[in-house]
Design a protein around this nucleic acid. Structure first.
Length: 290
DNA sequence: TGTGAAGCGTCTATTACCTCA
DNA sequence: ATTGAGGTAATAGACGCTTCA
């Protein structure tokens, strides 16, 4: 179950100093890996795991950001104390009394009427085309949430057990999980969007900074035609990434701070930049090509 | 061994219903 | 009492995978 999301960060390919394996670990576990040929079979209890090391506090320790937890936390918050058992499996020792809320009778409908309707549903598919919408009770939803936390897909056995336990039709359980996965994915998409937005802003800033730097270098070149004889102006260059900075500009290491952790050059720009003279630098650069 | 049909599960888009402000 | 928005249960269709003849 994986949704591969690849970012078109081609420049990273060309930057050997930026580790792409760990620091840039931008992977989202979502969807059906079987469709992508990654795995033959994915365990049904594999959680939806979203890893954005660069967004975590611990900078890529692999713990990542689990959208399930976010969603579940939200759900738990909103449920506020709804009695939820925490099943280790979908089969627990008791069967909850889950009434169905419908219309203004929420929570008041007795089980017998529901059973009757359920039987009727099974018989004639809701007596034609009228589709009734049965709102699941808080308890049922909470229980399903708990179950979803354990495994976001169900095998037939689990589905049946859950249905029996919640007094729902297996089809309802199936649909609930379907919709729940869809909601998770939607939420995931929002998270992705925010992340990419931030990346975009960072890159825009970086681009702006580089443009400015370029202008400064050009100005420097024009204003000092006899640079060979001029006193040394301190420019710095990162020995690894060869990013140039004037005395006014930030050091590469400082510039690095604007990046999300995953985009930071971890090993290169932390090195002390070696000062070079303007003459040496400008000589080695063909500014007209920039 | 290759192939096509059937069955099943999942995803995605959409609809329809319900609740609430 | 009405209404519009938002949430969500349910449906339909497409697709991929597995099994089997």
């Amino acid at each position: 179950m994986e949704l591969a999301l690849s970012l078109g960060l081609g420049f990273l390919e060309k930057s050997p100093q930026i580790s792409r394996s760990k620091d840039l670990g931008f992977c989202i576990g979502l969807g059906d890996a079987r469709k992508y040929g990654d795995e033959k079979r994915v365990p049904s209890d594999s959680p939806l795991l979203l890893r954005f090391p660069c967004l975590t506090d611990n900078h890529g320790d692999g713990r990542g950001l689990d959208v399930n937890r976010l969603l579940l936390a939200e759900a738990e918050e909103s449920e506020e104390g709804a009695a939820v058992s925490s099943p280790n499996s979908t089969v627990s020792s008791f069967q909850m009394d889950f009434g169905i809320r419908t219309g203004s009778n929420k929570g008041k409908r007795d089980l017998n009427s529901f059973e009757a309707e359920r039987a009727s549903d099974d018989d004639d598919e809701l007596n034609g085309s009228a589709r009734k919408k049965l709102r699941l009770s808080k308890e049922q939803s909470a229980f399903l949430e708990e179950s979803f936390k354990e495994h976001n897909t169900l095998n037939p056995k689990q589905k049946l057990a859950l249905a029996k336990q919640l007094n729902l039709r297996p089809r309802q359980v199936e649909v609930w999980f379907q919709n729940r996965r869809a909601r998770t994915k939607l939420k995931q998409t929002e998270v992705d969007r925010e992340y990419l937005k931030r990346c975009c802003e960072t890159l825009r800033e970086e681009n702006k900074r580089l443009q400015k730097e370029l202008l400064e270098l050009r100005a420097l070149k024009n204003s000092q035609p006899f640079y060979m004889n001029s006193p040394a102006t301190t420019l710095t260059m990162c020995p690894s990434c060869e990013r140039v900075a004037t005395a006014k500009a930030q050091s590469p290491a400082a510039n690095n701070r604007g990046y999300p952790p995953s985009l930071r050059s971890t090993d290169a720009c932390d090195l002390e930049p070696s000062p070079r003279t303007a003459a040496h630098l400008i000589k080695s650069l063909d500014l007209d090509d920039l």
